[in-house]
Structures are given as structure tokens and as C-alpha cells.
């Protein structure tokens, strides 16, 4: 299985390289440092959500409420920024968004664990509750006009390069935040007992319980972590577009799930890696960017994404069947 997974990741990497070559052949501006930095920045929102979703999928669950959670935390920080923006700083903003995200996530985890309601059902219900109540309270207003420091922060470049014409570009701080989150997630999953316990629980909940794992704690952690990523994602979204709208994220759950599943995470739990999720986000992101650069009408974007998902899922199913067949013969 591990070998298959590694192969899965190399297949993805291969597909990404192939697409990159094709796009570059048609429009060389794809393969430039400037576009590379832009791409990374544009991945950071889906990428952050994908980290949380990865944890949930590995644990054997699913979360359809993270966009609603992100909307709630995004709205809260937007209101705070508008009313007392001068007394806040970026750390406080991340902290507040994170706390809101974690609280709502833990609420999901608690319902799932206490009442044994399937995670999909629980999160569909809570998603309606979070999103419905938020929209009632806020009346669906768009919020914009944040303090200048908030806009300035989004423009910070960690590495700055200049184009031939002298325009500056480079690695955005937003990308850096995402990369830090990726590394943290990778460390948790790979090198902590907590991370390995999540794999163990997703792999076999019964065995995990017998082995003395605290499943309640794991559930609370996983959904709380998804909430944290949703909260951070909402800040990233606010930084990227400098507006907060109640309906800009809800309905995008499936895009994130598709990216993570493309990256090799299984809906039955126990499998998935940060690298895979990163590659899944990259593949879907590059397709979008590439189509723009190749002057494919944006109308076709979804058709192609749909085909890519279907082909990739079929391919995975086909390979699984082959490997089962092979094993039967060799035994």
C-alpha cells in the first residue's frame, strides 16, 4: 500500500510536469518565476483548507462545514477590523480567527463523538446552522474597507525579484504562511504520536480503541484542527481579496475534497499524505492557470476539471483492482 501510495504521488507529479510542459509549449509565460510565485499565492487558500480536510479524511471522516466555519470566522474578523482595526495586529487576527474556527470545529467533533452521528450528516447539519445564523445576523452584507495595515500586510514579499521592466514581484507572505502550515501538518502527521494515532484510528477504529487510544480526544483534535485551518483560511481569503462576503466560500467544499482525494487520501480513512494533498491542490490549480494562459475559454474550466477527477478516480480504482489480482496470483 505504501508503495502504491508513493507511486500515486509520482503519477501526480508526472501529470503536473506533463501539463506544465504542454502549457509552456503553448504559452512560455507559464514557466516563469513570476507565474510560479503567483501560482503559489493562488494555491494558498485551497491549500490551507486542504490541510484540514486531509486530517479529517485520514481519521476516517469528512467535514462539509468548514466553509461555513471559515465564513463565520472571516465575518467576525472583518467586523473587528472595521470597528477597532487600529488596535489590532495580524497576530491577533489569526488568533481570533483560529479560536473561532477551533471552537466550531470542536463542536462538530463533540457531536460526532458523543452521539455517534456520521460525520457527513453532522457537518451538513452544522454547516446549515453556522451559515444560516451568520447570514441572519449579518443580513448578508459584504464587508470591505479594512485598515490600511491589513492591506499592506497582504502586499509583503518575503523574497523580491524585479522584472526586466523593473516591476517587483516575489514570494508573498501569504504563501509563506501556507508553507509554514504545510510543514507543521507534515510534522504532526509524520513525527508525532498524535498524528500516527489519527492514521491508526482511520485505519481501524475498533483496533484503536482496543489498543487504548483515546478516540474522543482524537475526534476533538481532528475536527478542531479542521476548524483551525478554516479560521486561518478565512484570514488568508480576507488578505487576498480584502473583502469578506458571506457567500464567497460556501459551496466550495467539494473543490477542496476533490483536491485532497486526487492527492491519494481515501474516503475510507487511514491513508493520505501532506505531499499528496499538496500535489492534488497543485494539479487542479495549474489546470486553471494553464487554461487561462492557453487562452482556453474559462467556460471550459469545469468540464476539464470534471474529466480530470473522473479519469484520476477511475485510474486509481483500476490500479487497485490490478494490485489485488496480482496479489491473488502470487499467493
Amino acid at each position: 500500500m505504501k508503495k502504491i501510495l508513493i507511486r500515486h504521488e509520482s503519477f501526480l507529479a508526472f501529470a503536473i510536469i506533463l501539463f506544465s510542459i504542454i502549457i509552456t509549449l503553448i504559452n512560455p509565460s507559464f514557466f516563469t518565476l513570476e507565474n510560479f510565485f503567483d501560482l503559489l499565492k493562488s494555491f494558498s487558500l485551497t491549500g490551507t483548507f486542504a490541510i484540514g480536510m486531509l486530517f479529517v479524511l485520514i481519521s476516517g471522516g469528512i467535514d462539509l462545514s468548514f466553509t461555513a466555519i471559515a465564513t463565520v470566522s472571516g465575518y467576525t474578523i472583518a467586523v473587528l477590523l472595521l470597528n477597532m482595526g487600529d488596535r489590532l495586529n495580524i497576530f491577533l487576527i489569526f488568533l481570533i480567527a483560529g479560536v473561532i474556527g477551533v471552537s466550531l470545529g470542536i463542536l462538530n467533533g463533540a457531536i460526532i463523538d458523543l452521539f455517534k452521528i456520521p460525520s457527513m450528516i453532522t457537518t451538513i447539519a452544522t454547516s446549515n446552522i453556522f451559515y444560516g445564523l451568520l447570514t441572519v445576523i449579518t443580513k448578508g452584507k459584504w464587508l470591505y474597507g479594512f485598515p490600511t495595515w491589513f492591506g499592506d500586510f497582504a502586499q509583503i514579499r518575503v523574497i523580491t525579484v524585479r522584472t526586466a521592466e523593473g516591476w517587483p514581484y516575489g514570494l508573498s507572505i501569504i504563501t509563506l504562511i501556507w508553507i509554514v502550515l504545510l510543514l507543521a501538518a507534515w510534522f504532526i502527521l509524520k513525527f508525532t504520536v498524535l498524528g500516527r494515532s489519527i492514521y491508526a484510528m482511520g485505519s481501524s477504529p475498533v483496533s484503536a480503541q482496543r489498543a487504548g487510544f483515546n478516540l474522543r480526544r482524537l475526534h476533538l483534535f481532528v475536527y478542531g484542527f479542521m476548524g483551525l485551518m478554516a479560521g486561518f483560511g478565512s484570514v488568508i481569503q480576507a488578505l487576498l481579496v480584502q473583502t469578506v462576503a458571506p457567500n464567497s466560500l460556501v459551496g466550495k467544499e467539494m473543490d477542496v475534497i476533490a483536491a485532497v482525494v486526487l492527492g491519494g487520501a481515501s474516503l475510507t480513512g487511514g491513508t493520505g499524505t501532506v505531499l499528496g494533498a499538496l500535489l492534488g491542490v497543485t494539479l487542479l490549480g495549474i489546470l486553471g492557470n494553464g487554461m487561462t494562459l492557453m487562452h482556453v475559454p474559462s467556460l471550459w474550466y469545469k468540464v476539464i476539471i470534471g474529466v480530470v477527477i473522473l479519469v484520476s478516480v477511475s485510474f486509481t480504482a483500476y490500479r487497485r483492482k490490478q494490485s489485488i489480482r496480482k496479489r491473488v496470483i502470487t499467493e
Binding site: 485505519s203 483496533s207 487511514g270
Partner: peptide, 17 residues
């Protein structure tokens, strides 16, 4: 049913406990 974790390696199954 052996209470194993099918998606983890043998080493992890042995030592994670």
C-alpha cells in the same frame, strides 16, 4: 481479528502501542 491497523506499516503496528 488481530486488532491490526491495515494501512500502517508492520513496524508501526508492533511499536505504536
Amino acid at each position: 481479528d488481530l486488532s491490526s491497523f491495515p494501512n500502517l506499516t508492520v513496524a508501526e503496528n508492533i511499536a505504536l502501542d
